[in-house]
Simulated assay, not measured.
Amino acid sequence: MSSKNDPSSNSNAATSSSDDARAELTAQVEDLLNTLSNKFAGVSSEIFAKMDEMSRRLDNLEAQLLANKDNKSPSN
């Protein structure tokens, strides 16, 4: 017979409670990691988009400077 003071029943309840707490903590940590991963991916995409835009603008500026240099060179 099992009584309320039986140490084995208390041990089982504590183990079950501990397992539930571990599972909940694991789920929360995984959720946090997924959220951070998604935010990092979003920020990375924004940075790459801005770098591509900056590269395009620098290429255009370089082309304009070369065109102006060719137009201003003295005719022989």
Rank of each mutant, 00 (worst) to 15 (best):
M1G: 05
S3Y: 14
S3T: 13
N5I: 03
N5G: 10
P7T: 02
P7N: 04
S8H: 12
S8E: 13
S8G: 02
S8C: 01
S9T: 13
N10M: 07
N10H: 12
N10V: 02
N10E: 13
S11T: 07
N12K: 15
N12I: 01
N12C: 02
A13W: 09
T15D: 15
T15I: 05
S16Q: 13
S16M: 04
S17L: 05
S17K: 12
S18R: 14
D19T: 12
D20R: 12
D20L: 03
A21T: 11
R22Q: 11
R22W: 03
A23T: 13
E24C: 03
T26Y: 09
T26N: 11
A27H: 11
A27R: 12
A27F: 09
Q28D: 05
Q28L: 12
V29C: 00
V29K: 12
E30S: 09
D31E: 15
L33P: 04
L33W: 10
T35W: 07
T35C: 01
L36F: 07
L36T: 03
N38E: 06
K39V: 03
K39N: 11
F40N: 09
G42V: 00
G42R: 09
V43T: 10
V43G: 00
V43S: 03
V43R: 06
S45H: 10
S45I: 00
S45V: 02
S45T: 08
S45K: 15
S45C: 01
E46F: 06
I47G: 00
I47F: 02
M51H: 09
M51G: 10
M51L: 15
M51Y: 08
D52S: 14
E53F: 03
M54A: 15
R56L: 06
R56G: 08
R56W: 04
R56K: 15
R57I: 08
R57Y: 01
L58F: 12
L58M: 13
D59K: 12
N60E: 14
L61Y: 09
L61Q: 07
L61E: 08
L61G: 00
L61I: 10
A63D: 09
Q64S: 07
L65E: 08
L65K: 10
L65F: 04
L66K: 15
L66N: 13
L66W: 09
N68I: 14
D70Q: 14
D70N: 08
D70A: 13
K72F: 15
K72W: 10
K72T: 13
K72A: 15
S73H: 04
P74M: 01
P74K: 01
P74N: 05
N76T: 10
